[in-house]
């Protein structure tokens, strides 16, 4: 059900400001890739271009081997989670999650009973049982984020795009949700690209990490690859904090080794 996403030489300019300068990136089917980069590096723009919310000036996006340009937003079947949730504020949680199913043309729309049971199942998946009658304004930030995720999952997406899913949450909640998202991904296996500017989050969560700076992908690789062989001086300094913490963690296990020498 999940498909790989292939981004080829994507370019996007706002006015005269180039936000993406020839970005290429492959996300394999079922893979969890983190898009890491400083503020303004073009992460959101890349995600929106893949989703089809932004029309790129040049380049190509492929889902499997289908050119995204030939697909409508509906046909792309992308689960998109926005940085600021973008929940429908006038709808209860249950109606938010059901939206994508009810919006289908009559021929492919499930019955109300089927929709309801599907929504309750999703609520259980995101651990929000019992909150279906609340309005978004009556939820905490972390709960809203999970509703947004459940809403995106309801359309059985082929690709999940998450824009700083935990950006607005405090450190504790972030850590919890991080673990939870990892487990969720292992269970559901969606091709997932998620944006973050938090190095720890990227290195802990992702199969691979793509580091973006000033509209260019600087390096793509696993956490170990990037830590061992940073491709550019920018990456070297960007991951400095993580490298230091990794080293400290290693040091803590070292005395034993040192003593035996």
């Amino acid at each position: 059900m999940s498909v790989p996403v292939r981004v080829r030489n994507l370019e996007k300019t706002f006015g005269r400001y180039p936000a993406l300068k020839g970005v290429s990136l492959d996300v394999e089917a079922g893979e969890l890739v983190a898009l890491l980069g400083p503020s303004g590096s073009g992460k959101t723009t890349l995600l929106r271009a893949i989703a089809g919310l932004e029309q790129p000036d040049a380049g190509q996006v492929l889902f499997g081997d289908i050119d995204a340009n030939t697909l409508s937003l509906r046909e792309r079947r992308i689960g998109f989670v926005f940085q600021q949730y973008a929940l429908f504020r006038h709808m209860r949680v249950i109606d938010n999650i059901a939206f994508g199913l009810r919006a289908r043309p009559r021929s492919s729309r499930p019955s109300e009973a089927a929709i309801k049971s599907k929504v309750l199942e999703l609520l259980h998946l995101v651990q929000l049982d019992g909150l279906e009658a609340r309005y978004p304004a009556q939820l905490s930030g972390g709960q809203r984020q999970r509703v947004a995720l459940a809403r995106a999952l309801a359309i059985e997406p082929r690709v999940l795009l998450l824009d700083e899913p935990f950006g607005a949450l405090d450190a504790r909640v972030r850590k919890d949700l991080r673990k939870w998202l990892r487990e969720l991904h292992q269970r559901t296996g969606h091709t997932t690209l998620f944006v973050t500017h938090d190095q720890d989050e990227a290195f802990e969560l992702a199969d691979r990490i793509a580091i973006l700076d000033q509209g260019r992908i600087e390096q793509v690789g696993t956490a170990a690859e990037i830590l061992e062989r940073p491709a550019t001086p920018f990456i070297d300094s960007f991951i400095e904090g993580i490298a230091r913490r990794e080293a400290q963690a290693r040091d803590r296990t070292k005395p034993h080794v040192v003593a035996s020498r």
């Binding site: 919310l53 509906r74 689960g79 926005f82 600021q84 973008a86 929940l87 939206f99 919006a103 289908r104």
Partner: peptide, 13 residues
């Protein structure tokens, strides 16, 4: 426009 964009991504016309 974020709610509208969310609706479009969910497949709404």
């Amino acid at each position: 426009t974020s709610e509208e964009e969310a609706a479009l991504m969910l497949g709404a016309s």
